[in-house]
Structure formats: structure tokens, C-alpha cells
Write a protein that binds this DNA or RNA. Structure first.
Length: 199
DNA sequence: TCCGGGATTGTCT
DNA sequence: GACAATCCCGGAC
């Protein structure tokens, strides 16, 4: 297993990839958060792509450029955080500049710092620690403070070290019932048979 | 300024 | 399966 140090962050070039390809390529990579208390890391096992102005389910649908979505219009490889009810969700900005696309990280499998995660988010069943988009940000201690941060320069980043040649499955996205045709797009990707996949 | 809604989760039936 | 918690965002006025 590789050490999850800052220098292991995947380079900018990794993110210069069509969003659907990138959403699939992220399966099996490792999401890392370096903190003063230690390293928290988990293998990405579920993602969803949001394809910008033509995707009714995306926040940037119809080119809706606001303070919230502004980071989506920037260069890929940055963090788009936003609040959903009582939770904070982590997205990776994708698409070239002025092409506001993003990828939601929906689930991870812990690989380092599990004890720290359980301090951040106590659970009865181990499986519930990181098997959902709101759960994993809480467990990893990733907050709105990371909105706009670079995955090449901040303490949150993506590295190798997870499954190699993962078996990836695809299907419709979760939790977007009111988006007409977009709710059926097969823009969700997950690691086959992994127990941390949200559903 | 007001008001409706949401890329979720936990709890209860 | 239903629903509340809870709060920021975005559009309407």
C-alpha cells in the first residue's frame, strides 16, 4: 500500500478527462484527508457524474451560474462542497473551464484512520461509517471550508492505493426524482459487490 | 425580506 | 415505507 502523503496526490492531468470517464476512473482511487490528528483515507467505491448545463439534475443546469456553482465553472481538480439538509456533500469539479460539470463522491471504504473516523461519526454498525455521501464527509472531517480547494494543493486529495482494475457497474443516479428525463441517465458508478456502496 | 425545496440521514411504524 | 430534522440557496416580490 502506498503512503498517503501529500506528494502522492494524483496530478492535474488526471482530471483533464471527460466527466463520465473520470467518474469511472475514480472508482478504486483513494480519498485522503490529512489532519493534525492523523491520516484519514478511504477507497472510493461509488460516484455520480453531473453533466453541467444539459443535465437537469445538475446544479449548473441551464447555465445557472451563482455563488454556489461558481467553482464548477473553474478548472477541474477542485472541490465543490455544498450543504444538503443537515449534511455536507463532496464533489470533484470536472470538465474544462467554463464547462460546469462535477462528480459526487457517494461512498468510500475506510483504509486508514478508521478510529479517527469513528470519533468524528460514532456508529453502531461498522458498515454505516462511510456508506453514503453525507456520512463520508462527516467521518473524514471534510467541511464547507474546503469549498474551492485544489486537490493538488490542499490536505484533501485523491491518490492511488485502492483496488486495481476494479469491476465497475453503472446505473441511474440516486435521489433525483424530480428531474424528468435526467433521473434515468446511467451516470452512477460503483465497485461491484462492495458492501460500502450506498444502495 | 420571505418562502419553498433539496445530489441526506436516522428513527419510527 | 413514511417523515422529521434543519439550513442554505435561489427565485419572487
Amino acid at each position: 500500500m502506498s503512503e498517503f502523503i501529500k506528494g502522492s496526490a494524483l496530478p492535474q492531468s488526471f482530471y483533464h478527462t471527460p466527466t463520465l470517464d473520470l467518474a469511472e476512473a475514480l472508482i478504486g482511487k483513494v480519498l485522503v484527508h490529512l489532519t493534525d490528528n492523523g491520516i484519514l483515507a478511504g477507497e472510493i467505491v461509488e460516484t455520480e457524474a453531473y453533466l453541467g448545463i444539459r443535465d437537469r439534475a445538475a446544479h449548473s443546469f441551464n447555465n445557472r451560474r451563482t455563488k454556489r456553482t461558481e467553482i464548477m465553472y473553474g478548472a477541474p481538480g477542485h472541490i465543490y462542497m455544498y450543504q444538503m439538509h443537515t449534511h455536507h456533500l463532496l464533489n470533484i469539479v470536472s470538465g474544462e473551464e467554463e464547462n460546469p460539470e462535477a462528480i459526487l463522491i457517494r461512498a468510500i471504504e475506510p483504509v486508514a484512520g478508521r478510529a479517527l473516523m469513528e470519533e468524528n461519526r460514532p456508529v453502531q454498525k461498522a458498515i454505516n461509517l462511510t456508506n453514503g455521501p453525507g456520512k463520508l464527509t462527516k467521518a473524514l472531517g471534510i467541511t464547507m471550508a474546503y469549498y474551492g480547494a485544489s486537490l493538488m494543493k490542499s490536505n484533501v486529495f485523491i491518490s492511488n492505493g485502492g483496488s486495481e482494475n476494479p469491476a465497475v457497474q453503472t446505473g441511474p443516479r440516486i435521489g433525483i426524482p424530480n428531474t424528468k428525463e435526467a433521473k434515468d441517465y446511467p451516470y452512477r458508478f460503483w465497485l461491484q459487490d462492495n458492501p460500502y456502496v450506498s444502495r
